[in-house]
Design a binder for these strands. Structure first.
Lengths: 129, 129
DNA sequence: GTTCATGCAAATCGTTTGCACAATG
DNA sequence: CATTGTGCAAACGATTTGCATGAAC
């Protein structure tokens, strides 16, 4: 695909799975989902491929305060909302605020490459309980 | 201090150490720093106390994309800048934007409690190399 | 004197890695 | 056929935990 790597059935399926979901899966969720299709799949392979896909820029690792990583294939820049009760992660539609970075550049002597915003609270489903 | 917990020399010293630094220490950095004063200190004790202090709201656990947690005793709400080269964490002076949360409430059906912003780039010291 | 905190070591959990074999180009 | 990806199991690093002893109240 991007050269350097050979194609592998497993990597393709992992990517397709990530592209087909709005949830922000963990490695072991992916592993469980693919167990039926690849009975001999190993978690190591899932992690290896998630890292390769990340490196290729096809997916992103999102680090949401938990002990484990989550992954997404949504390439549009966006912010996240994390439900404090069910720990679900949602993509937000709020526009990206690039002006934040310019604003900061004036205040400090940093070179800023990117920024990340995460909102925390209770999601709609959890509120209804 | 807040009741429920007894006072312990170790916990007090860990808190004072965190309050006296602008760096955002890891558990093992704290452990190393206190080794001379408490030759028998154990990492388990450091972790236990960091969790208690966190629960008491005296310090905050900050999860900066690394594999390990960092801690800070800075109680003023603030955002972070993380240097991609040396991994240092800096507290920012930019004002907190509470309007972001109101703005979002209009767009989604979430109840928002808080938000976090992290900026990534290169710090002043690393630029000079 | 009862209860909580400590030190120590073992356990846990998510992730990575070494190796022999299978799949890719 | 040369090389990369796989499955498996062992290794890893950060954090947590069980237990017997020591400190706090």
């Amino acid at each position: 695909m991007t050269g350097k790597y050979r194609r592998s059935k497993q990597r393709e399926v992992i990517l397709r799975l990530l592209q087909s979901t709005e949830s922000h899966p963990t490695a072991s969720w992916i592993y469980d989902k693919l167990k039926s299709e690849f009975p001999h799949l190993s978690l190591g392979t899932v992690y290896r491929n998630l890292n390769i896909l990340s490196e290729q820029g096809l997916i992103k690792k999102i680090d949401c305060g938990s002990t484990f990583d989550r992954f997404e294939a949504n390439n549009h820049p966006h912010y996240h909302f994390i439900c404090e009760q069910c720990n679900s992660v949602f993509d937000l539609k709020t526009p990206i605020m690039n002006n934040l970075e310019d604003q900061l550049s004036g205040l400090h002597n940093f070179t800023i490459h990117s920024h990340m915003i995460e909102f925390f609270g209770v999601c709609e489903a959890c509120k209804k309980q």
